[in-house]
Structures are given as structure tokens and as C-alpha cells.
Design a protein around this nucleic acid. Structure first.
Lengths: 172, 172
DNA sequence: GGAAGGTAGATGCGAACGCATGGACCTGAC
DNA sequence: GTCAGGTCCATGCGTTCGCATCTACCTTCC
């Protein structure tokens, strides 16, 4: 039935696959509805995600920190921030402590846009998610999804075919 | 028919937003790990999703039906199916009942590829999801996410110019 | 101090995306 | 029959994506 895990606990493969499929499908269903809401004419949902993350950091964030919270690859995020800066919603400044770094900060216009879009977006979330689950279910979902995410750093990545990690290309 | 929950019960906006954020972040975290697995050298995860959906339909699916289960827009899905057909993994045939329609079907090669990749993919899911949650949590997650998705058809889309909103910052 | 290796972010480039639209076909009213 | 409107899929087009790579800077070790 189960498959042995590194921690030694048997894992129900079918139950895990089913849970992932439901989680994934639910997320897709909600996301598609959110994206159809009539509030994304000024920024895209992905751009909003970046503005939202920045809104939680008054002193700005390094591009690297922003990438950790983003769905995008580093190059894509770099270009998105460039577009956001061109639009006047963020500023890019050299990092004081690290000559390689870039600190991204919301402008007042960007903060205002985030608040305005966020106000309508959270209402939509309450409509689609809060309209489907009661308070107990919301709390349960928050707890279980949080546990799932929190456990990830402690789980090793999958190796290729049971082979050991690839050797360094440059010997001595 | 879905029930109209907006009229009977107040929605906790903050709890709904928090649940959505955790759901979304957990999905992103797992998806990023899955995409890094060394099993996507022949097809992408999105292509696998299409092959998987087709594997559940021995008689094939209309492109329209496939689009309902897909994350892609209709044009993107149309082109993806074209690529899958060029690779020899699916066939496209005119629909018998509808001259506009296209029926997409797995080839034996496509079915074999789906099974092979699927076998490794489900192990990865068991590793990342099953390694993070116990059986009770998996069952809970399956139930709540399923309820969230099942309720969506009964919830009306958001209208332009919605109701006034509280000042709560919204996650993605 | 200086070389070696690692990290942060930018950029070239081809692939894939979504939006808008077009053409073919179906349906229903008359 | 035929015409209007809707549905299904394909295609033109501009945008955005990720991968690979590059430059610049930091850190470590000798």
C-alpha cells in the first residue's frame, strides 16, 4: 500500500495524489474566476501579487527576496519590475549593503493602486471562497494548507533515477 | 443549483482571504517542487496535464471539453494539441456529430508516455504532499478543497461595481 | 593582495502565452 | 430556403515567459 518515506512513516500514495489533485483543481477553479473579475484592467494579477508583497515591506525588498515570494523566474521578475518602474508604481535603487543588489520599493502611486485593487480583490475572494466554505472549513483549510507549505523546506528534492547527484563538470 | 450563501450568512472576509492565501501559496510551493523534478524532459507538466485528462477518456474528448479541464486558454490549448499531434502522442479527428468539432485521442505512444511519466509523478506527489501531511490531514484537505471547487458553479460571478469593501489587504 | 568560486541581477533568444479576430458550421425563426 | 446569431476551432499578432548566459560584485582562502 504505502511507500516508505525518508522519515520512516508509510505514505498512502493514493491519498496524497488525490489530495493534491483536489488542491490543484480548487486553486485553478478559484484562480480562473478571480482572473475574470472586472478589476484587472490596470494591472495583471501577477503584477498585483508583486505590489501586494511590496506593500508588506515599507522599506522595500531586494529583488531576490521578491523572487522568493513570486511565481516568476528571476529573469521574468526582473523584467516585470522594470515594467512596473516604467509605469511609476515602484522604484529601483542600488542596495546600500551590497553593490550587486537592487532594492524595490512601492511609490505612493503604486501603493494607492495596490490598495484600490486589493480592496476589490479581497471582496472577490470573500465572494468565491467565503461563499463556498463556512468558518470552520476556512480555518481548517488555512491550517492544513499552511502545514503543507511549512513542511516543504524539510523535504528533500527528488533525485534523478536513484543515481547520486551529478558530478561537478570541472574536475580539479 | 447551488445555494445562495450571501443572503443567509455573513462572510468573514479576513478568514476567507487568509484561507485563499494559504491555499494559493501551498499550491505554488508544491508546484514549483514538482516542476523541478527530473521527469519533465520529454513533456512539460502542462502537456502532461492534457495527456492525463485524455487518459481518462478512452473515446477521446472534444477540444472544448479538454479546455474545461485545462489551465490554458482555448487558443493556447489548440496550439498545444497541435504540438502533441506533431509529436505523435495524440490524434485529431473531425467530430462525427458536429462538423465544427475536433476529437482529440491519445495514441498508444501517448498513453504509454502518460503512464510512464504519471508513475514517477505520483511518486513525487507522495513524496512532497504525503511527506508533509498525515492520513487524516490528507483526507481533510481532499474534503475541503473538493467542497470549495464543488460550490463554484453555484456562486455568481462578480459584477462590475461591487459592494463597498472593508480595508483588508488582499493576497494574490 | 590576488586568484577562485559563489551570488545578484540583467540580457539575448526562442518558445508559449492570451487577446482579438476569422472562417466554418450549427440552430432556430420565419 | 435563408438569414441572424451562436458555437467551435484556428490563426495573426504583440507580450511575456523561462532557459542559458553574461557582467558585476562579494566572500573565502592562501
Amino acid at each position: 500500500m504505502g511507500q516508505d518515506q525518508d522519515q520512516g512513516r508509510p505514505v498512502d500514495v493514493r491519498a496524497a495524489a488525490q489530495a493534491w489533485e483536489e488542491l490543484f483543481r480548487a486553486q485553478v477553479a478559484i484562480m480562473r474566476r478571480l482572473q475574470r473579475d472586472p478589476i484587472w484592467d490596470r494591472i495583471t494579477l501577477r503584477e498585483y501579487d508583486v505590489l501586494f508583497t511590496l506593500s508588506t515591506a515599507p522599506d522595500g525588498l531586494r529583488l531576490r527576496e521578491l523572487a522568493e515570494h513570486s511565481l516568476l523566474s528571476q529573469p521574468s521578475l526582473s523584467r516585470m519590475v522594470e515594467r512596473l518602474a516604467d509605469a511609476g508604481w515602484v522604484t529601483r535603487a542600488p542596495a546600500a549593503e551590497d553593490g550587486r543588489g537592487v532594492v524595490v520599493r512601492l511609490t505612493p502611486e503604486g501603493a494607492a493602486l495596490q490598495r484600490e485593487v486589493g480592496r476589490r480583490h479581497v471582496q472577490a475572494i470573500a465572494h468565491y471562497v467565503g461563499g463556498a466554505l463556512d468558518d470552520d472549513q476556512l480555518a481548517t483549510l488555512t491550517a492544513v494548507a499552511g502545514a503543507l507549505r511549512a513542511a516543504q523546506p524539510g523535504i528533500a528534492p527528488l533525485e534523478r533515477d536513484g543515481a547520486p547527484a551529478p558530478a561537478v563538470p570541472a574536475p580539479v
